[in-house]
Amino acid sequence: MKLILTVNGEIHEVESIWEGESLMHVLRERLALPGAKNACEQGECGSCSVMLDEVLVCSCLVLARQAQERSVVTVEGLAPPDDVGVVQQAFIETGAVQCGFCTPGFIMATEDLLRRSPAPDDAEIREALAGNLCRCTGYEKILDAVRLASARLGAMG
């Protein structure tokens, strides 16, 4: 089948995809956007998180055909090339990135959280990130990153 979708503001036409392909597979293997990571492929770890029409989803659990004529934002689309967004920068500065395989998913979940709730308390942050697994950091620096991003975005108004 043929798939037409918007990814990071750009319209893509993808020819002859197999019907069982996930959105994650199409992003990674057909559109060369590996930012949605393939850690569990069953919606448990959040590493493949993207925004689908502004809803945070695990792209491994979305069939590519479900994204037909819809809009997807991946971690690659959060900032122009050679730049990083506030949340991304906060992850770098606080040491929230180690192996980094979980990082794009955490960044997407944080973007989603801060859009809904710009000044979350710790309990709210923990609940918002509870669908994402990290094996390296013990989460402490990730919490620091979210707090820092929230404070900076608040200061920027």
Partner: peptide, 23 residues
Amino acid sequence: ESVLRADGRPKVRGEFAYASDLG
């Protein structure tokens, strides 16, 4: 010093090439 990792930027941008990203 708390030097920041050089691979932090590609990792937060989703551009860092893990083995499963190669083609």
